[in-house]
Simulated scan of single mutants.
Amino acid sequence: MKKSIYPILFCLLFSFACEEKDDPATVCGVSDPIESLPWLKQLVEEASTAGLAEYSYISKAKYNGHRVFYWGSCCPHCNWALVLLDCSGEKVNGDYTLSDLQEIEVIWHLENSQCNFN
């Protein structure tokens, strides 16, 4: 009986040791998503040249356990809609708000940004 317990314990221990975790140094499998993801680089270029660019920023976050990105605005007189994009730049469908996001981090804004990120 004791001999059969050891393989079971070994399997249980091994199953916990193999838990897959995100590498905090990478986003969508790359270390610099703005330079490595062409669609995101294009989004940054559009945001930096758009009207009211000083109020624009791009953030990464997690939504339902998946990495997402969005173009945001801190313009005090503007309205903007939250549109989430996945790692391939495709729109994430759903009814979501900023409060549904976790691990939000601004990854781009202009040097003369009018936004307060503190």
Results as ranks from 00 to 15, higher is better:
M1D: 14
M1N: 14
M1Q: 13
K2N: 09
K2T: 08
K2L: 13
K3V: 13
I5W: 10
Y6S: 13
Y6A: 15
P7Y: 04
I8E: 00
I8S: 03
C11V: 14
S15T: 11
C18I: 09
C18S: 13
E20V: 13
K21A: 01
K21M: 03
D22Y: 02
D23E: 06
P24Y: 09
P24G: 06
A25P: 04
A25N: 15
T26G: 02
T26Q: 06
T26A: 04
C28S: 04
C28M: 04
V30S: 10
V30A: 09
S31C: 06
D32V: 03
D32A: 07
P33F: 07
P33Y: 11
P33D: 03
E35M: 10
E35N: 15
P38Y: 07
W39L: 12
L40M: 07
Q42G: 01
E45F: 14
E45W: 12
E45G: 12
E45Y: 15
E46G: 00
E46Q: 13
A50G: 03
A50V: 10
G51F: 11
A53T: 02
E54S: 15
Y55R: 04
Y57C: 05
I58Q: 03
S59M: 08
K60H: 02
K60C: 03
A61E: 03
A61P: 05
K62I: 00
Y63A: 09
Y63Q: 09
G65K: 10
H66D: 11
H66M: 10
R67K: 08
V68W: 14
V68A: 01
F69Y: 12
F69D: 06
Y70T: 04
W71Y: 09
G72P: 08
C75W: 01
C75V: 00
C75S: 06
C75T: 01
P76A: 15
P76R: 13
N79S: 12
N79M: 11
W80D: 15
W80F: 13
A81N: 11
A81F: 14
A81D: 11
L82Y: 06
V83F: 09
L84N: 02
L85W: 05
C87K: 11
S88E: 13
S88A: 08
S88Q: 13
G89M: 06
E90K: 14
E90F: 02
N93L: 07
G94C: 08
G94N: 04
G94M: 05
G94L: 05
Y96A: 07
T97A: 07
S99F: 04
S99E: 11
S99L: 06
L101K: 01
E103Q: 08
E103S: 03
I104D: 05
E105G: 01
E105Y: 01
V106T: 15
H109C: 06
E111V: 00
E111D: 10
N112I: 11
S113P: 04
S113D: 08
S113A: 07
Q114Y: 06
Q114C: 12
F117L: 03
N118Q: 08
